[in-house]
Design a protein around this nucleic acid. Structure first.
Lengths: 160, 160
DNA sequence: CTAGTATGGACAAGATGGTTGTCTATATAG
DNA sequence: CTATATAGACAACCATCTTGTCCATACTAG
């Protein structure tokens, strides 16, 4: 980055760091049988695991978890179901709820993501040192909200 | 963040760190007379300053600099011109080029952004320590591309 | 000088991914 | 039993970026 960015360097490096990890994750995921996974799908899977109830997660649940409308969440669910990552079900105690749970294919994607992130983390540790990397994450925890799972609008940096 | 994210923590914290800075920047910018500035406009201003020629930057220049189509860049330019951040001009040596340069209002926004980022940086330094913060940026420099000004598609984490 | 090629800008159409609003069916609280 | 809240389906709309086409201007090789 050229010298004239000065004050912009901290945010920019954070964004670039994120991009580097995410881009490499998805290159590798594509090689490992998940070519259609998109950058946010891993987060969506996590949200689906945690947001729902006993019998799975509904579009409304997911929308609340991700901070988007239930309609937007519904479209994401349709796509993921089409890709074989979600399986529909129902809640025997509430006939309104159309639930979804992760398929084995989705669990495979999550496990591979974990492994790939771990490998990338190890590469970073080799470059900057394990202690420094640990310090970085620890420090970031101190300056970011503790439980920010919602990213609020996924297009937040384009949003009006 | 709950414990089960494990490997996702590094990328997530990087993204959250970026969001925290950008959100606070724009809250403060709004207070300081720039309520319509959007998260990427600061980067666009930087790109406009550096991407063009002697007489300013064209939509095609900007598109190349940002990694988007010239049409998309043109729409961004239209919006920024409408907000009073860009002034049209022309290149006396090339009648095809419709150039744009930053207005004083845009320079004001850039200066205020610099100042606000500096203040936010100081807050972080107070929380985690000046040395640790410096180490963080230094380390991120080592693991990110040196001159990545292009963010390639601005919607990269939604892109197909 | 001229012919061919490259580039800037305008315009239109389409994809994507989000929004709000409305409707019906089911649940739940009083 | 009635009133209210919520799930889901459907439709309309909006924003942003894309591709493709077209014309005017510039550049380069002969």
């Amino acid at each position: 980055m050229s010298s004239d960015l000065q004050g912009f360097e901290l945010p920019l490096r954070l964004l670039l760091g994120f991009r580097v990890l995410i881009d490499e994750l998805h290159e590798e995921l594509a090689r490992q049988g998940h070519p259609r996974m998109r950058p946010m799908h891993g987060f969506v899977f996590q949200a689906i695991m945690r947001a729902g109830g006993r019998y799975g997660t509904t579009a409304a649940d997911l929308g609340r978890a991700l901070g988007v409308s239930k309609q937007a969440a519904g479209k994401t669910i349709d796509m993921l179901e089409g890709l074989g990552y979600l399986r529909p079900g129902h809640d025997p105690g509430d006939a309104r709820r159309k639930t979804y749970t992760l398929t084995p294919h989705a669990h495979d994607a999550l496990e591979r993501s974990e492994q790939i992130f771990e490998d990338l983390r190890d590469q970073w540790a080799e470059t900057i040192g394990e202690d420094r990397l640990r310090a970085m994450v620890e420090d970031l925890r101190k300056v970011t909200p503790p439980d920010a799972f919602r990213l609020d609008t996924p297009q937040w940096f384009n949003a009006p």
